[in-house]
């Protein structure tokens, strides 16, 4: 009798503790979520592995160079190459941005080269990542007396889809 009651009391305490723990682990979203994370010293950042860090930095360099550079002569190919590295939602935003470029770039013979100077990881889970990238954007064209140089800072968000890292957001700071 007494031992059965003691068992029930002990088990009840353990069940309550386990239930509380389950609620706690379910509410903790885990790494790689925070949309507002912009710095690698944020307490919510994660670095899932050296391999992922390297992969997302490389993909960011490729993707930013493609997204921020184009030539009036090869615009269709340049856009296709940039879109290939983006998620569907990012492709739609990119298309809207580039819609106005076609006419004016042909008229002005615009050539924009985007040189990625450096990349650095903010946070990376196995499915989401954010990378800070410095881009030098040189623009030349008939409408410019001389080429312009922009020293850009871009926060790039990436998502892994079907095993491939793709750019899902480009936030010029």
């Amino acid at each position: 009798m007494v031992s059965s009651r003691r068992w029930i009391a002990t088990l009840t305490v353990l069940v309550c503790a386990a239930a509380a723990t389950l609620v706690w682990v379910l509410r903790d979203p885990g790494p790689g979520v925070g949309a507002a994370i912009s710095s690698a010293d944020d307490p919510a950042v994660s670095v899932v592995s050296v391999g992922v860090k390297q992969a997302v930095r490389e993909r960011t360099a490729e993707g930013a160079a493609a997204a921020y550079g184009y030539s009036w002569e090869t615009l269709a190919e340049d856009k296709a190459a940039a879109r290939e590295l983006m998620t569907t939602a990012m492709q739609e935003r990119y298309d809207r941005t580039m819609a106005g470029v076609a006419t004016s770039s042909r008229r002005d013979r615009t050539v924009v080269t985007a040189e990625v100077v450096d990349t650095a990881l903010v946070t990376a889970s196995s499915t989401h990542a954010r990378v800070l990238v410095f881009v030098n954007q040189r623009t030349s064209g008939a409408d410019l007396a001389e080429p312009t140089l922009d020293l850009d800072r871009v926060l790039v968000t990436l998502r892994r889809e079907g095993g491939e890292w793709r750019l899902s957001e480009l936030d010029a700071l």
Binding site: S38, S39, R57, A120, V122, L132, F134, R153, L155, L173
Partner: peptide, 18 residues
């Protein structure tokens, strides 16, 4: 505005800051 870490090993790290 933003800050990321580039190459890093046991004793050294490169950091970019906007």
């Amino acid at each position: 505005v933003a800050l990321g870490v580039g190459d890093q090993d046991e004793d050294s790290a490169t950091v970019l800051v906007a």
